[in-house]
């Protein structure tokens, strides 16, 4: 185990968030079973009052998780010097089998948090709490993620042993290797870029379609999510290589380093924001037939989708800048 302040902080955050979510979900169960907006009973009144507490708790938890996600990656990047064989976050995540799952769970929690917060926001605008059951039902689904994250992260940190010789990104992200990372790196850069362009265009088109026609919000969410996955693939298979100016270095984490001008953050942050907003828009799109939300949802969706498209464009611009501004030329080889 490594006793370092950032790890201590991450563990505390996960623990506190799990406690708060447990509390919120317990209350959510009560709401799902007994909620009746027309009733004036004491129970209903208490529940209505308590919704304020729960929304605050959950919103705060998701905020904390968001910062914790950044801290988690940043920390992994920083402590890589303490492990033999690790040169960036990849090696540190590889130190034991719980590293990667923790990261995936953190990302999943981030996205589900975005969806929940959008639902909550819309629900608070309506007069009669139309989404209260959906909202608190969703908490029941998110809670296992949070608990699992707490358990996995704790095991991950406990299993960290500086004597372990871990493998660095160079050996994991190679087309010749085995596993998902190798598969990702093995994708032809040309194919990846083509996919990225197509999916990006599809996302922007469906988004634009929504802005004018108020239709197919779900389609936008789906295309955005696809774009998100393809973007990750493209970063590993192609964009990163241009940032490193090295035709065989596929690591998705080394781009976060100072030596590469923190390019990774400029790529990932807009991408994550765009996807989170798109997912939020997709989640509220099917609810626009509820009477009290008829006015609210289109307005909210338009805002969400607009901002989401802006961030996605930003991501594409950064990626384009990374490729065009690079000294690596692969025109003959790849294109």
């Amino acid at each position: 185990m490594l006793l370092n302040p950032a790890i201590l902080a991450l563990s505390i955050v996960s623990f506190v968030v799990a406690c708060m979510m447990l509390l919120a979900t317990g209350f959510g169960l009560q709401v799902v079973r007994h909620w009746d907006i027309g009733s004036g009973s004491e129970l209903q009144l208490t529940m209505e009052r308590r919704t304020y507490l729960i929304s605050t708790l959950v919103a705060f938890s998701f905020m904390a998780e968001l910062v914790a996600l950044l801290l988690f990656i940043y920390n992994a990047e920083q402590i890589s010097s303490q492990f033999v064989g690790a040169m960036c976050a990849t090696g540190v995540l590889n130190v034991d089998p719980y590293g990667w799952p923790t990261l995936y769970l953190k990302i999943a929690i981030f996205f589900s948090g975005a969806v929940w917060l959008t639902l909550n926001h819309v629900d608070n605008k309506a007069r009669d709490y139309p989404l209260v059951r959906v909202k608190y039902g969703l908490l029941l689904l998110i809670l296992p993620l949070v608990i699992a994250e707490l358990v996995l992260q704790t095991r991950y940190f406990l299993g960290m042993d500086p004597d372990i010789i871990t493998s660095c990104c160079g050996s994991l992200f190679t087309p010749e290797g085995q596993g998902v990372a190798a598969e990702l790196s093995g994708v032809e850069p040309g194919t990846a870029m083509l996919l990225l362009t197509v999916s990006g265009a599809a996302a922007l088109l469906t988004g634009g379609w929504y802005l004018f026609q108020r239709k197919s919000g779900i389609a936008f969410a789906v295309t955005s999510l696809t774009t998100f996955l393809i973007a990750l693939l493209a970063i590993v298979s192609c964009v990163a290589l241009y940032i490193y100016e090295h035709p065989h270095h596929h690591c998705p984490f080394c781009i976060l380093k100072e030596g590469h001008d923190f390019m990774g953050y400029y790529l990932y942050i807009p991408l994550f924001i765009a996807t989170a907003m798109a997912l939020g828009a997709g989640a509220i799109a099917p609810l626009r037939n509820i009477t009290s939300l008829k006015e609210i949802i289109p307005a909210e969706s338009r805002q969400l989708i607009g901002v989401s498209m802006l961030f996605m464009l930003l991501f594409y611009l950064v990626a384009a800048y990374a490729i065009l501004g690079s000294n690596l030329t692969m025109v003959e080889v790849w294109w």
Binding site: P5, A6, L8, A9, L10, I12, V13, V16, M20, L53, T56, L57, F60, A64, V67, A68, L70, L71, Y74, N75, Q78
Partner: peptide, 21 residues
């Protein structure tokens, strides 16, 4: 670096906020 600042933030502002919710 940012890690120092972020950790410091988590050690101080986070518990305070949790305690007051």
């Amino acid at each position: 670096d940012g890690l120092q600042l972020a950790t410091l933030f988590f050690f101080t502002v986070f518990p305070y906020t949790v305690a007051t919710i």
